[in-house]
């Protein structure tokens, strides 16, 4: 925003300090800045990279901390995970559960967030409070009663049970966040749409949603991740081995005394791939999408 001033030439030789272009900073400061960010980036990436590198080590050498691990790289771990275990089935289960959670989660939080942003209806304040309280009651303790409800509905050991459970976790935050995003879209657009002949649902669908892409991207990212890596509900609800999702399935590689690190590393890397894909599509919207959510209470 200040670039216009930046390019303005100094009218006459000014003191050295003033002549400096605003975007310049001393070399030392610049170095320190980049060094800090580089350090942070290394820390952010290292655990992931380490798992990735380890996944290429032969099973018997995985428990070594040599950094020169790529001297004998192997895809054996991946082969074992993909062909000797039900991993592909779990993976597919997870994809289905996460995809449904994402789609339904977006639909629910978007409609709910829109209603909260635009309409004054009885119970609105109460609903906002319920959202906060649902975040306070520990999931670990909800598992038992939700299990009972699911059992009564005959949904235990089915994917819908997980999708519904994950929605309870993700939707309150997402609806609240999207409400903040919708608040930044001028209300006049709704009014213009009403005069142009759209009803409330038409306005939502044809005018508001196309403008809320950043907010929806964050919601997609958040709902997907909630479902993708979840373990506790998955272990509790899914009973047949071939119906497990990834989070629950991988726990089978960690028996009490003999963790199968080679399977775990390879499995973890494979798990990260879809998450990375969703992340790739969402990342450029994350800052803009969360902006409003953070600023509005």
């Amino acid at each position: 925003m200040t670039t216009v001033e930046v390019s303005k030439p100094a009218p006459k030789p000014a003191p050295k300090q003033l002549q400096r272009r605003r975007s310049d900073r001393p070399l030392l400061a610049s170095l320190a800045l980049h060094a800090t960010l580089l350090g942070a980036t290394v820390i952010a990436l290292f655990p992931v990279l380490w798992i990735l590198l380890s996944s290429f080590k032969p099973a018997d050498r995985i428990q070594s901390s040599e950094i020169t691990l790529v001297d004998d790289p192997t895809l054996e771990n991946y082969r074992a995970v993909l062909f000797d275990t039900p991993f592909p089935t779990w993976f597919l289960n997870s994809v289905i559960v996460a995809a449904f959670t994402m789609v339904i989660g977006i639909a629910m939080s978007a409609t709910c967030g829109y209603a909260l942003s635009r309409f004054n209806f009885a119970g609105k304040r109460g609903l906002m409070w319920v959202f906060l309280i649902t975040q306070m009651f520990p999931v670990a303790i909800l598992i038992v009663p939700i299990y009972t409800i699911m059992a009564n509905l005959g949904l235990i050991d089915t994917k819908p049970s997980l999708v519904i459970a994950y929605l309870t976790v993700a939707v309150p935050f997402c609806a609240w966040m999207l409400r903040g995003y919708f608040d930044t879209i001028p209300k006049e657009l709704d009014e213009a749409a009403a005069l142009d002949g759209l009803g409330p649902f038409g306005t939502f669908w044809r005018v508001i949603l196309p403008l809320a892409r950043p907010g929806l991207a964050v919601t997609a990212f958040y709902t997907f991740l909630t479902a993708w890596g979840e373990v506790a509900y998955a272990i509790a609800f899914m009973q047949s081995r071939n119906k497990l999702t990834l989070g629950a399935g991988l726990q089978q590689f960690v028996p009490q005394f003999n963790p199968q690190w080679h399977l775990l590393t390879a499995g973890s890397v494979l798990i990260l791939i879809p998450a990375a894909v969703v992340f790739f599509f969402a990342q450029k919207h994350l800052v803009a999408g969360l902006t409003a959510g953070g600023t509005k209470g």
């Binding site: 006049e188 009014e191 213009a192 749409a193 009403a194 005069l195 759209l198 196309p210």
Partner: peptide
Amino acid sequence: LRPKDRDIAMVFQNYALYPH
């Protein structure tokens, strides 16, 4: 009546053009 049933067009202060 709802706005759409009134056969009215409006010009808003901030124009309210659909950005997309």
